[in-house]
Write a protein that binds this DNA or RNA. Structure first.
Lengths: 213, 213
DNA sequence: GTCTATAGGCAGATAGAC
DNA sequence: GTCTATCTGCCTATAGAC
């Protein structure tokens, strides 16, 4: 009953798993094509270059995630009162929807974002900003509305701390899950990590400004 | 008046700057030796291998930072009441002391930790745990004492979120500093980032547990 | 200790047969 | 569309002259 998957999709599926685990530069086309059971040359035939493959992998997720997030944020924008917690809760469902691309889609997407940020300085970040800049802007606006006591710059920095905590948690999630299992005998899924993360980042964002303590 | 620096130290200095900016695997011995103005073969003569060079770079910082942090934590341990904020404030001075290794030492060390975590899965992490496991344990104990309402597992996870926010902020600090300059016309030093970070991570760690909201 | 020269391996990309 | 074979370039590491 194995579905007949096109070579192009086989490559995308193998690539995203390897990219999420080892990063973009650390993953070779030889590994990808071996895992996908396709010929080495087919990557360049279907995508043109490794760089284009990376963008295709990310775009498959972003094109699903970003519009869904934007819709949630728009909805929240009409509320009279907005809390930080409500803003971050907007991420839950769009993130969960990514299982339709891959069972581990939510974790994969966050890992990809992390590596994109750390590795390809500027390149993919600029791409995202151009393509989805309005979503980011809406997000910052909402967070500022939820925290009028902070300056716009505070919100900017804290949003990046949030991003850091999130992608780091996902990139090192496998190791952390194993340690948690060994030390606390607890099985923690990728979604459980999100549940643990959201109170943390909401608490961090709501914290008073340095000078006010 | 240019100090006469040994070849070994020239390599260490060039290596740590490149490692902190691009990561370990992305930095070649050719780049390092070119920046250091030494011969390519001298790395293997002085350090034996690239892996050993990486460890030497990290060890130079950890051997200064970890004992200093441990002393601060020990001091705090005798207090009757401990707040999360006090625990994180223990990091400030040991971190600042790293300027004695390099002017940008604090930022470099945090970047190195970030790449060590993301790239060399297990290897350097195990090394750190073996060498400085007692410091980590003291840290977790203090944070748990400051937050008795949390489970030990909550503290474990939140400590890693903290680590993520911190190293991510440093790894992408250059890009973020440029954006902050462009958008808010504000010059933010590496130390300023720490000032912005500490209220955030303290607020996140003190947040109530998910089920208590 | 420092150099040149090179070994040996893996990377991305492509030409051209089928 | 898919394959084999190969080009070109970069990497770490080392042998051996000085």
């Amino acid at each position: 009953m194995a579905a007949r998957i096109s070579t192009k999709d086989k490559i995308l599926n193998a690539a995203e798993a390897l990219f999420a685990e080892h990063g973009f530069e650390q993953t070779s086309l030889r590994q990808i094509t071996a895992d996908a059971n396709v010929n080495l040359a087919s990557v360049n035939y279907h995508f043109g270059s490794k760089k284009a493959l990376i963008q295709a992998v990310i775009a498959r997720y972003s094109s699903l995630f970003m519009p869904a997030l934007d819709a949630k944020l728009k909805q929240l924008q009409s509320h009279p009162q907005i809390s930080t917690r409500e803003v971050f809760d907007c991420f839950r469902e769009p993130l969960r929807e990514l299982v339709h691309i891959n069972k581990r889609g939510p974790a994969i997407y966050l890992s990809l974002l992390g590596y994109a940020y750390a590795e390809i300085q500027g390149h993919l970040r600029r791409f995202t900003m151009q393509e989805y800049g309005d979503v980011i802007l809406r997000l910052v606006t909402l967070l500022h509305a939820a925290n009028p006591q902070l300056t716009a710059e505070d919100v900017f920095w804290r949003l990046h701390f949030v991003l850091g905590a999130t992608v780091f948690a996902q990139v090192s999630s496998q190791a952390l899950q194993e340690i948690a299992k060994a030390d606390f005998n607890s099985d923690v899924s990728a979604e459980d990590i999100i549940d643990k993360l959201i109170p943390f980042i909401a608490g961090g964002l709501d914290a008073p400004h340095e000078n006010e303590i």
